[in-house]
């Protein structure tokens, strides 16, 4: 199974992010990583949490606009050029990345890249053929 990212619509106003974080805190949901893409009036909070289905249900119950998106997680050596080589492989196969972000693993030995592709299955195939290991759901969510 793929990694589930939660995406949340946030108005660019004080307290909106805090509200979302409070909903997660109240249910003891842990955020593994997050990123925010913003324009002038609003932003999209994208995050990976330990209990995505529970978090999704809780946010919906609080009338927060959110959705679930399949993303891929790849562990890379934390060395110069590792990301370049990976992106080069995508580029050669004409695979377009919608967006990406990163965090380090718990031991700090690897960078974990999160990728959002239009065509997840084509990206999985390409990663497999290039010898990359796609991280399992349990590796990321810890479920």
């Amino acid at each position: 199974m793929n990694i589930t990212q939660l995406s949340v619509f946030l108005e660019n106003k004080p307290g909106r992010l805090q509200h979302v974080l409070k909903v997660l805190f109240d249910r003891a949901i842990n955020i593994r990583t997050l990123t925010i893409a913003e324009v002038s009036d609003f932003g999209i909070l994208r995050m990976i949490v330990n209990k995505p289905e529970e978090a999704y249900a809780a946010l919906k119950a609080e009338h927060v606009t959110c959705s679930r998106t399949d993303v891929l997680a790849v562990a890379l050596e934390d060395t110069p050029g590792a990301l370049y080589r990976l992106i080069d492989a995508f580029s050669k196969r004409q695979l377009n990345i919608e967006y990406m972000y990163a965090f380090t693993d718990r031991h700090g030995e690897h960078s974990i890249m999160i990728f959002r592709f239009d065509d997840v299955e084509a990206a999985k195939l390409a990663l497999g053929e290039e010898g990359y290991t796609i991280m399992k759901r349990t590796d990321i969510h810890g479920e």
Partner: peptide, 16 residues
């Protein structure tokens, strides 16, 4: 108002 039906995780879709 943006509900789940029209929401997308991609900025370009929301701007569109």
């Amino acid at each position: 108002e943006v509900d789940e039906e029209i929401f997308s995780d991609e900025l370009k879709v929301m701007n569109a």
